[in-house]
């Protein structure tokens, strides 16, 4: 039976982003030396939102960058050629800083593995952390997130679809099955 149920509404998404922003401030002594690196595509608007919320709460302006991991994937040969997104180094670079990778969904962990490789080619961060909107489980690598918006237990056959206003016109997280 195909279904699509909403697990986070637009108000939920905003609350969750607010909470992650607070947690980052708490866990990093007021976001000292923090750089937010959004993973292309939906991690990028999320990173910008986190920066915007942290700026609203504490008046801090954090550097934001974008990391496209296409050229670092381990499954390139299993699909047709993928589009390459735009990587943008954060102002001031990543060397020695506390880099928080930001993505929408944490699943197998392979994207984050690729992101860590991509990041180490950009420089040598002091600390790397991970913030995700949704953790859906089913890890295939020893990777975990430092900040999780919502844990959603899923079956492998299900799909988590994250919509963000900047890309999709609306904020919503849905759980789908075909």
């Amino acid at each position: 039976m195909p279904y699509a149920k909403t697990v986070l509404t637009d108000a939920d998404v905003q609350r969750v982003v607010d909470r992650i922003a607070h947690q980052i401030l708490e866990k990093t002594q007021g976001a000292q030396d923090v750089v937010l690196m959004g993973i292309v595509s939906r991690g990028v608007p999320l990173a910008r939102r986190l920066a915007e919320r942290i700026s609203a709460f504490e008046g801090l302006s954090l550097p934001v960058g974008a990391l496209d991991i296409t050229l670092y994937r381990d499954d390139l040969r299993q699909q047709a050629v993928r589009k390459v997104g735009h990587t943008e180094e954060p102002p001031g670079g990543v060397d020695g800083r506390r880099v928080i990778l930001v993505d929408d969904v944490l699943f197998s962990g392979r994207t984050i593995r690729a992101a860590l490789d991509a990041l180490s080619d950009l420089g040598r961060p002091g600390v790397v952390q991970l913030a995700v909107l949704v953790d859906r489980g089913h890890r295939q690598l020893p990777i975990r997130a430092d900040y999780v918006g919502k844990n959603i237990p899923t079956a492998l056959t299900e799909k988590v679809r994250v919509k963000l206003a900047e890309i999709d016109g609306t904020d919503e997280v849905q759980l789908e099955a075909a």
Binding site: D68, L71, Y72, L76, V84, G85, H86, T87, D117, D121, L122, G123
Partner: peptide, 15 residues
């Protein structure tokens, strides 16, 4: 995007 990589210290990709 490749040109941006050429401007970095590590100019190599594992692709």
């Amino acid at each position: 995007e490749m040109a941006a990589v050429q401007g970095r210290e590590i100019k190599k990709l594992p692709t």
